[in-house]
Design a protein around this nucleic acid. Structure first.
Lengths: 204, 204
DNA sequence: AACCTTGTTGGACAGTCGTACAACAAGTGA
DNA sequence: TCACTTGTTGTACGACTGTCCAACAAGGTT
């Protein structure tokens, strides 16, 4: 008589990914305080010891989760920009608007992102990932703004502004969901974008 | 022969405050992960057991620290607005600019604030404090914007936008101090404010 | 069918966590 | 000087943490 297998082997990459996704879910649900090796292992349906087999430690798993989540966001933004066609203004608007639509506006992803922020100060490797991620955001925004005809001297401050605005809206959307909706946030960001890209006729 | 006292008694309020301030310093330095009863007690120069004497638990101490920090920020903003005189535009600008000057631009306070954000999702009592704090920010901004002549229908979205922008700049100023300076952030916020309060002549 | 690699398990280990509490002592009033 | 209140200490407790590792077994090879 044959018994059912006690466990199933997975492709190493698939198992690695499932641990990363479990880590993201735990971070979203319970924050950084709840992200222990055991909690994550249970979430992934796996023995605690397996985490050590795929990652040097729990810190490395969390860092990998940040990198994976960041790449997911980058891909979603890139897709949205590409789908907007060739018009520079439309591409810029698509970049900003996509931040408030699926899959980026997902509350679970937002909460995970905030958990990463809380680690930046204490963990140098997370700080490095953060710098890289946000440097990328600003660089891409600068390029899109340049294509849309924004003056060269304005590129840097406007890119910083838009990144900060989107982040701030994102943050409050996650922390106080009843304060305003994702649609309202998107409309606010688009309005700010309109004011930035329209030639300033009230100078002086 | 008399020996030196083993400890000094403090006024209950003073001791309570010193624990709150120690908690804020620990949160800024080590994040939420490092904010244990023992760490905070050492920071305050006090025995671990004393925390339980003044607060129901470590969660209550952290919540009290959030309330205290929020009140500190409110007071600083109120002072800045009052010092700006009677001109509505100047008062509005003072509110926004004060966020990037002492004592609010303090990296320690920023880091503490981020630690609170990371707790909002998991701790209902922290979420309630957050809603109250940010509801207050937006309400005050709406009042200042109204005084400055912003159209009634625009008050809500513009207040949300300014709050988000300031928060986003604040956040990045803390997480990537080398990306831009506090002065640059203040200039960016003022420029956005100018675009918001100036009559829009490019409509249509 | 015997074998080998290695993904996977489950528990041991030292350390830290939050909480509770008995004992001590500082300061006050009598 | 004595008693009394209570701020303060230090520690014990069980539950949890991250890391480590010997043992097991799944899946492929020979």
């Amino acid at each position: 008589m044959s018994t059912a297998p006690a466990y199933r082997r997975s492709e190493p990459d698939a198992r690695r990914l499932s641990l990363i996704e479990a880590c993201a879910r735990v971070l979203a649900r319970a924050g950084i305080a709840g992200a222990s090796v055991r909690t994550i292992a249970v979430e992934a349906g796996v023995s605690p010891g397996l985490v050590g087999h795929y990652f040097a430690g729990v810190d490395a798993l969390i860092a990998a989760t940040y990198a994976h989540t960041g790449a997911r966001v980058d891909a979603a933004l890139e897709t949205a920009v590409a789908a907007a066609g060739d018009d520079p203004r439309a591409r810029l608007e698509a970049f900003v608007t996509a931040s408030f639509a699926a899959p980026i506006a997902d509350p679970e992803l937002l909460a995970t992102w905030i958990a990463f922020w809380s680690l930046v100060r204490a963990r140098p490797e997370i700080a490095a990932l953060h710098d890289q991620q946000y440097g990328g955001f600003r660089a891409q925004l600068e390029a899109l703004l340049a294509d849309a005809g924004v003056a060269r001297a304005e590129l840097r401050p406007r890119a910083i502004e838009l990144t900060a605005l989107v982040d701030g809206l994102w943050l409050e959307l996650c922390l106080s969901p009843q304060a305003f909706s994702a649609d309202e946030a998107a409309a606010i960001a688009r309005a700010a974008l309109g004011r930035i890209t329209s030639p300033d006729r009230s100078a002086g």
